[in-house]
């Protein structure tokens, strides 16, 4: 799925990485616990989260993810946005809640696990 399709499906705003919306991603995960993301996520390229702090951006970067979606109308700080720009991450924000946002993407074809790695 293209990142711009995620944006459309979730009616999301683009906060960083506008120029990367054409990139493809193949899997996603949702969590508010960065500890769990670091421990259990393998090749998921998209993180949906309701947590807003700089560690979300660093966790995504350490995991080689390409896109973070903030759910429940959470808005990242300017510092988080500039960190994301520096590391080439796409940041999206949607008013939808976690369950709904995940459901929409899942039924749109973005599954939780796919062997193929995202193209960066």
């Amino acid at each position: 799925m293209k990142i711009c399709t995620i944006k459309e499906l979730l009616d999301a705003r683009v906060l960083a990485g506008e120029e990367r919306l054409g990139n493809h991603v193949y899997s996603a995960c949702g969590s508010d616990m960065m500890s769990d993301v670091l421990a259990y996520v393998k090749d998921q390229a998209v993180l949906l989260t309701g947590l807003v702090n700089t560690q979300v951006i660093r966790t995504a970067e350490m995991m080689d993810m390409v896109c973070v979606v903030f759910v429940r109308s959470k808005t990242p700080t300017p510092e988080m946005i500039s960190l994301a720009e520096e590391s080439g991450l796409v940041l999206l924000a949607t008013d939808k809640r976690m369950y709904e946002a995940c459901g929409i993407l899942y039924s749109g074809g973005l599954v939780s696990n796919k062997v193929k790695k995202a193209t960066v």
Binding site: S35, D36, L38, L51
Partner: peptide, 8 residues
């Protein structure tokens, strides 16, 4: 803050 799951 998203940490402290004892997985580190």
């Amino acid at each position: 803050l998203g940490f402290g799951a004892g997985m580190g």
